[in-house]
Structure formats: C-alpha cells, structure tokens
Design a protein around this nucleic acid. Sequence first.
DNA 1: TATGAATGAGCTTTCATTCAT
DNA 2: TATGAATGAAAGCTCATTCAT
Lengths: 207, 207, 207, 207
Amino acid sequence: MPEAATTPRKRLRDPEGARNALVKAGVELFETRGYASTSVQSIVDAAGLTKGAFYHHFQSKDELLQRVHDEFIDHQLSRARAVMSEPGLPADERLRKLIREALLEPMAVYKAEITVFLQERRFLSGSTFEEIQRKREEFERYFVDLIEHGMNDGSFRRIGPARVIAFGIIGTGAWTHTWLHLDGSLSPSEIGEMFAEMLIGGLVPRD
Amino acid sequence: MPEAATTPRKRLRDPEGARNALVKAGVELFETRGYASTSVQSIVDAAGLTKGAFYHHFQSKDELLQRVHDEFIDHQLSRARAVMSEPGLPADERLRKLIREALLEPMAVYKAEITVFLQERRFLSGSTFEEIQRKREEFERYFVDLIEHGMNDGSFRRIGPARVIAFGIIGTGAWTHTWLHLDGSLSPSEIGEMFAEMLIGGLVPRD
Amino acid sequence: MPEAATTPRKRLRDPEGARNALVKAGVELFETRGYASTSVQSIVDAAGLTKGAFYHHFQSKDELLQRVHDEFIDHQLSRARAVMSEPGLPADERLRKLIREALLEPMAVYKAEITVFLQERRFLSGSTFEEIQRKREEFERYFVDLIEHGMNDGSFRRIGPARVIAFGIIGTGAWTHTWLHLDGSLSPSEIGEMFAEMLIGGLVPRD
Amino acid sequence: MPEAATTPRKRLRDPEGARNALVKAGVELFETRGYASTSVQSIVDAAGLTKGAFYHHFQSKDELLQRVHDEFIDHQLSRARAVMSEPGLPADERLRKLIREALLEPMAVYKAEITVFLQERRFLSGSTFEEIQRKREEFERYFVDLIEHGMNDGSFRRIGPARVIAFGIIGTGAWTHTWLHLDGSLSPSEIGEMFAEMLIGGLVPRD
DNA sequence: TATGAATGAGCTTTCATTCAT
DNA sequence: TATGAATGAAAGCTCATTCAT
C-alpha cells in the first residue's frame, strides 16, 4: 500500500515562497535594525533558509532592498495619481485627499516598507535605485504642483515657496512612521484627516 | 567692545584639540554615510589622527556618537525651555516661537548633528543613551503640553489628540533636515516662520 | 567531388549536442579566464544550458577539463607517432617534422585547448588525469629520444643532456600559445618551420 | 632581581618581518597551487598570522601578487639593461649574454617568483599591474631589437620576423620554469649556456 | 534528459577593539 | 599621550555540487 501523502524529507521546493519569506524577513529586520546593520545571515536565519538560497534569488542585499520598495512605491504612486487625475476637485479638497489617501493611508498596509524607505532614503542612489528615485520625485512633484496651483488661483495663501510648503506637509506625514503604532486607537486614515485639517486650515485664506 | 554675537558663519565651534577634530570628522561622516557605515578608520583618517588616538579619547564608536549629540541637544533643549518659561505668552505665540526658535533655528548651526540624531534615533537606546532619550522626551513634551493647554483654553481647535498634533508639528520641522541646504536662499529661521504660519493658522479657531 | 580537406576556418568541430556546446564553452572560458576562475554557471550560461544539464553530462568540472584535453592530445600524439614511425628519415629531418607537425601545427586547430592544457598543467594530477599525463610523457619522450639518438649517431652536437635540449625545443613551441594570434600573417606551420630552422641549425655540426 | 630577558607573551611586533613572512608564504603557495586557488587563509596560516594582519599590510590579494613580482622584475630588467648597454659587443655575443644572464640566471634566485609571474601573466592586467606590464615589454623589446639589428648587420640569418624569433628564444628560457629543479646537476647558468649555444648556432650564418 | 532551488563550505574583505611599545 | 600592528569575529558574496521534481 502506497503512502497516502508525499513525505518530503527536506524543505518543500517553493521558490515563490522562499522569495516572499526573504522579503518579509528583510523588511522586518531592516525596519528595526536598519539596512546597514542587518546581515544577510540574520535575514536567512529569520526566513529559515541559507545564504546560498538568498543569493540564488537576489543578486545582492541591495536588490532585496529594492524589492522591498517596489510594491509599496507603486501603490503609493498610483494613489497619488488617482487623486491628481480626479476631475473637478478644488485645490483644498484635492490636497486633503492627497494627504490622507496617498501620504498617510498607505501606512496602514506598508508601514514597515515605508519606514525602511524613509530611513534608507539617502542610500537609494546609483543606477540600482534610479527608478525608485524617479517615482519618489513624481510623488513629491504632485504636492509641489498642487500647492503652486492653489496659490496661483487664490485657494491657498502664499505663505512661502510652494516647494517649502509641500515639503513641510510631506514631512508631517513622513515623520509619522517614527511614532505610529498600528495597534493604537487611531488609524493612519484618521491621522491623515487630522493633519489635513490642520495643514489646509492654515493654508486657506481666512474668511 | 566684544564681537557682536551674530550667527557663526564658519561653524568652527571649537577648532582645537584632537577630541574636537574627531567629533567634527565623526559628525560629518555620520551625516553623509550613516553611523553604521562609517568606520573608525575613516574617522581618524579624516581627523588626521590614528586609531590609537581615537580609543584614547573615546571608549567606543558609540561614545563618539553620544558626544556628537551632547552639545546640540542641550542647545535645543535650552531654547525650548526659554520659550516655555517666558511669561505671559498666548499659546499661539508661544507655539510660533517654539517652532521657529527651538525646532528650526538650531539647524542653522547644528544641521549635521541634527541629521545624525534623527537618522540614528533608533540606535540611541541602552544605558549609554539614556540621558539623550530623556532630553528628547522633555523636548517633545513641551510641544504636547503646549498644544494640550492651548486646546483646553480655547486657543487651539481640538482637531485631534494633542500628542498626534504635536508629533505632526515636530515632524514638519524634523523632516527639514532631509532637504534643507544651508547655502540656499531661505534660512531655517525663515522656514520656521512659514511652517509656524501654516500650522498655527490651522490650529487657531476661525474668526 | 567532396570538399577539399583544407584547414577548417570556423572551428566547428562538432556543432551539435549539449555535450559539445559545454566543451566548447568550457574551453573558451578556460582559455581566457583560467580554469579555477571559471564557474560552472558561466559555462552553462555561455552554452545556453543549465547547471542540471552540466552535471548530467559531466560528473564534475574536472571531468570537463579532462574532456577538453582528450581530443587534441590524441591528435598531437598521433602526429608525433606518425613522424616517429616514418622510416628512413635522418635525425635532423625527423626533428624538423616533429617540431612543425606535432608541436606547432596542432595550434592551428586546437590553440584554445593547448593554451588551457599548458596553463593548467600543474593541476592535471591525480588519477583523473593519469592518462593525460601518460600521453604527455610519451609525447615528450619522442623529443628526448630523437635528440639522444641524433647525438649518438653524430647528427647533432652534444651541446648538453638530451633532456635539457629537448625541453628547450618543446618550450620554444609551447610558449607560442602566449603570443600567437591565429588571424595574424603567420600560420603555426610557418612559425614551426622558422623555429625548426633555428633550432636544428644550432644542433647540427658545422661544415 | 629583574628578569634577564624580555618575555613577550604574544607574537613580537615586527611589521617588516610580518610582511616578509606573508610575501614568502604567498610566493610559495602561488607557485604550487596557483594564484586563484590560493586562499588568503592558507597564506596567513603558513605565515603564522591572521587575515586581519594580512589586510593590515596589503590592500588586497592582488597587491601581494604585485609585491611578489616587484623585486625579481627589477632584477631581471637591470640585468638585461646591463647587457644591452655593454659597449662593443657583437650581436651574437650580446645575445648569448642576454640569454644566460637575463633570461636564465635569475631563475637561480627567483625561480618561484618567475614561475608565478609566467603562470599568472594573463591576469596581470589593469592599472594595478601597469608597471609590471611596462617592464615586461621593455625586457622583451631588448630581445626583439637585438635580433633585428643582428639581422640587419648580417650577424644573424633572417630566418623570420625578428619578433617571432625573439619570442621563440624567450620561450625556450621561460618554459624552463616548468621542469627546472634547482637541486639538479645543472644550474640555470649552465642551461642558459646550452640554450644560447643551440639558438645562436642556428641564427648565425654558416661559414 | 533536464530543471533550477537549495546547500554548505569557503571565499575576499571589513572592522571595532586591544595592547605592546 | 599616542602609535599602529594585530586580533577575531563577522560581513557580503561565490560556487561546485546535490536532488526533488
């Protein structure tokens, strides 16, 4: 009588699973210990694999860092694009949506990835990270352009250069990764609403 | 007649001594390459000294990181304390001063140190960095308390929990280290004024 | 009428089959990068195959090295045997043919293999390479014996021990792999003729 | 009563000695196992040091290879220069001295280094080895020029292009490293004399 | 016959720290 | 005070080989 089920002696062949396990272990370790201080050994230990397997799936530790960013950056960017292309929205309403939907809400799903990205920003240079840089710049440009247009049509007060105001707003959101606990009482969406209320309240002209 | 106390132009806060050379080299390298990726060898090379000298002055690389923080943290904290202890200031005016004088202006002198601090925040744990953590918490508490009081006395709208609002404001300023160029057209003080205008404008009740 | 048996221009000695593709890729990579520095991965990449295929055809990287040698060594040896068994040849004429036909001419077809062999000679030890070593010794013995006999019958001057003279002659030819360009103006056969003229000219007695 | 002699507990500080031990171990291992197949670990084991010490003294394994070459190449080159600058020597006598004194005799002292150089020739490329390449070319040029001049003034028969003849001669000598045993009955100098006799005998015109 | 994921050992190199001088 | 040789552990990465599929 044959054995009822396959009895794999060693780890099941599951390349997709292995990749995901490595990315998952990577993002978690990068988030808490930083990219430079996280060894490939610690990643593969966490994923239950070996260094050989790591380098079978990724050309380098850098490539893993890239993969960590890939998904969430597209997510964040597509949310920003959606808000920007929505027709007929006044500048203040568009900015409110941009803050909440593109800046804060992605943290509900991608907090770890976003933390890694924001912490390692400086090192995402060189050709490996060219695309990521380009996407980041597109994301930031939406804020700058929106502020600029809002200032031009009188929706916003011209408190200062659009770029400075935009970076102030982005900073408000970006900094959130340093103190946000997802198990807390407030969701990223609610925090986004509060920040938008404060920031836009300060931008729109009085009466 | 003594020199007028203008803002120092050359950032030569203490040009003499091996210790200072090491701290200076350390902060510059930590700023651009990160603490973990900066070797003691590169620090002593930059300072024109030897490894032996380094370990003569510092017990460890960690201790140098601590020294890098020491001066600017006290500076920032004393500025915050000064603003908080100024009598008879309405909440919005006190917050404006806190943002400009304690949050942004220190960047004019200590941009490198602040950048290192904000980037390496995560690693400033353990007993070595206990004091730094305590000072940081005191600094943040001033913002939270001020917002809280302002909300209580009706100076500020209760947009959300004081802590969330305070961290939003701190983030706006903290993030500045990622894009600020000191040789630019805007000084930290001016940027602080703009941020304060936007943030406080959003906090105070309409009409 | 069949194609005239000219020297093959394209070195397509056996274009079909995975085995041959691997041997071909191997010899080319070994020639330029050396055996130790050539990875199995790079070989299979060059052959358009996979590692699994490699180990299906060869037990090890060593075995591929062996296969690289197999064909050309037999070729070279059979040429040497032919020259040695030709009847009624005076020693100087036999040496001239040996130099040209067995030492130099094979480079026209097997330059890459010969280069690999000469470079990796040291590592062709152990039982795996026993046969190759035996064949190499047979090849060298023909030179030594021929010189020895020539010295005995007065055809050659007894400049020194036959073995030393033989190795000098072999060296003259062997070294050619380091500078020969097959696309150059001189063919291995012509070079062999020149070397023979010089070497034999020095060996035969004056007047 | 003080101790009569110093009693070092650990390895005596002797940087010069350490460097020499590493170079010595390196050349011996490179000679027998080849550069690519010799690990830094095996070198430091042979030298009684640690890997850390190795990289304290040398920037890389490549740099050690360079150091291995440095001394013997200058030695060989200065011998060649001396022969070339000796006044009033007929071409055949100059060539005889070049073969014996510059090509063969250095093997009496630097056989291991020369073996390593000849085996690893191919890999001595790039800026690290620029100087070595330049010196090698100068060395070879002396042979080519001398043959060329000898052919022009009738001292040598124009058997073929000077470059081909020169490389044949150099090969005769270079190949010696593959079979020479220094404990044998023949010295490099004697072997050089025999090779010179054979080679020059073939080059000079008959009566 | 063939794949390619996975291993495990070893590679070159880096580095914070120690310590004889 | 200061040097810099040396350590020892660990880093990122490579690679010949195995083996479930």
